[in-house]
Nucleic acid binder design. Structure first.
Length: 261
DNA sequence: CAGATTGTTAGGAG
DNA sequence: ACTCCTAACAATCT
């Protein structure tokens, strides 16, 4: 669920709620699997400090600590930050908790525990070390075209890889291919530069729309995402949608609008 | 109840 | 060393 636009919302949410309050503790109950470094290191970088800034690359969110380190949050499939007052009940599936000295707390809630918390010296070195690509919102069209021209794998699988550019997830990839009338199983390198440029433009448009619109109900009617499920029909031609599995992920297409080669 | 869901990665094959 | 593919991960919903 949390793809680039949702993580951007999380970033703005934290920017406006969780900054500039002294952190008094970090707690977790047996959720070591969500920590990529020992809890003691997270505590060392946080307790007694406060968060002073936010950043984001693709689906990776960063919170700067006044101690100098950055905390990296990755939300996996079901993760969510929740800022709330300690007198309120905790959110469901709270896994990791930061307490502030003003009585408020910041939870990493995560139903399926695929979320991850990590420490970084700085955002750019973390990006390089972990081989995360440029943010999908900011990658120049030439770099985008070049990245996809080299791969033999299915275009949809290529779009989901975070190493060339980061932030595209399952529904955005389907939406991009639908809007450009491309078939998800066509080899990435079988596309013309013009087709790839169109894909880039569609990616920018979808991400920008998703960030400003927020909820999926507010997307324009011609978007696939509004009807992206079994039994629904194509917003353009009303053909019933087809479900495929591409690279192990559920994929919806319109056979008529996206015929492939 | 079997199967799908979602993002990422470890592991293995070529 | 590289590219590509699959399965695994957790927990819930259909």
């Amino acid at each position: 669920m949390p793809e680039l636009p949702e993580v951007e919302h999380y970033r703005l949410y934290l920017q406006e709620s969780a900054l500039n309050q002294k952190i008094v503790s970090v707690e977790t109950e047996n959720e070591g699997r969500m920590l990529k470094v020992p809890l003691a290191e997270i505590r060392d970088g946080s307790v007694g400090e406060s968060f002073t800034d936010t950043d984001r690359i693709g689906k990776y969110l960063f919170l700067k600590s006044s101690g100098g380190k950055w905390l990296m949050w990755h939300f996996g499939l079901t993760g969510q930050p929740v800022y709330y007052h300690g007198s309120s009940p905790p959110p469901k599936y709270q896994r990791i908790l930061f307490r502030f000295d003003n009585g408020y707390q910041l939870a990493f809630a995560c139903l399926r525990k695929f979320g991850r918390l990590d420490l970084a010296d700085d955002v750019e070195s973390y990006r390089i070390k972990n081989k995360i690509g440029q943010d999908a919102m900011h990658i120049p069209v030439a770099d985008f075209v070049q990245a996809l021209s080299k791969k033999r794998i299915a275009i949809k699988t290529a779009l989901l890889q975070q190493k060339k550019f980061a932030g595209v997830g399952n529904w955005i990839a389907d939406e991009m291919l639908f809007q450009t009338s491309l078939h998800p199983e066509t080899p990435s390198n079988a596309h013309s530069p013009e087709q790839l440029a169109a894909l880039h433009e569609s990616m920018q448009e979808i991400i920008a729309t998703a960030i400003t619109e927020g909820g999926k109900q507010n997307f324009p009617d011609h978007y696939l995402v509004k009807v992206r499920k079994d039994g629904e029909s194509c917003p353009t031609c009303e053909t019933e949608l087809t479900r495929l599995v591409v690279g192990g992920r559920g994929t919806y297409i319109c056979d008529r609008c996206q015929p492939g080669t």
